[in-house]
């Protein structure tokens, strides 16, 4: 078929001008957009992917932003990101201290791309709850609070009380964030005394 420039109303020169003009325009974007922020992952402390998520390395590539996990989530835990997150726009994120994941596993069942792998509640590793002993009332011997222990869906497995102080057990903690959400203590920077660290999101992909 070939490039039929004679039939077209825009000549090759105009086309090149438009192309070059548009690509030059990209450099006029605000600096943070151009810089690494555009490709920076939104996953951080208490900012978690839904259960079963593939490593962050390929999450943005595998997820097709169909939003079905958001729609199906009965607790509205899953929020779709917007363009402020660059190429991660449209991917799902759980804000643990706002609305945690209640591990109903509905999102896992509907994901059409396998970005959320079909795993069980127990296998879920959205992150790991890490207790800040400098903040926690129990560890500071101020008052007796066992909120995180009481709300944990895997009580005595993921969080146990040792001498009335909560202790997290890595082998059972799903990182659902229910403890973070329930924790009555909020630090100045918005952290709780128990936070979810998305440790597993940084796993390398086995190609």
């Amino acid at each position: 078929m070939g490039w039929n420039w004679t039939r077209a109303k825009v000549k090759r020169r105009d086309f090149l001008q438009i192309t070059v003009g548009l690509s030059t325009g990209l450099f006029l974007l605000p600096a943070p957009v151009r810089a690494g922020k555009f490709f920076a992952s939104p996953v951080a402390r208490n900012r978690l992917r839904p259960p079963g998520a593939v490593p962050e390395e390929i999450f943005a590539g595998k997820c097709i932003r169909c939003g079905r996990c958001v729609e199906v989530c009965p607790y509205k835990s899953i929020v779709p990101l917007d363009i402020g997150n660059g190429v991660y726009a449209g991917t799902p994120l759980v804000y643990a201290e706002t609305v945690p994941c209640y591990l109903c596993m509905k999102c896992v069942a509907v994901c059409p791309t396998g970005t959320l792998r079909k795993i069980s509640q127990q296998e879920t590793r959205m992150g790991l709850a890490v207790l800040n002993r400098q903040l926690c009332h129990n560890w500071q011997d101020q008052i007796l609070c066992r909120t995180c222990y009481d709300v944990c869906p895997f009580k005595n497995q993921a969080i146990s009380l040792e001498e009335l102080r909560p202790v997290v057990h890595e082998e059972a903690c799903t990182g659902c964030g229910i403890c973070t959400h329930a924790c009555p203590l909020t630090a100045e920077n918005g952290d709780k005394a128990i936070n979810i660290e998305p440790l597993y999101a940084g796993a390398r992909v086995q190609w």
Binding site: C66, G67, R68, V72, P112, T113
Partner: peptide
């Protein structure tokens, strides 16, 4: 949740489109 999604992925019952 009988119908979910839009034209990136749509599900009607157990019928899934991508």
């Amino acid at each position: 949740d009988f119908i979910q999604g839009w034209y990136q992925s749509l599900s009607i019952g157990k019928l899934w489109f991508v």
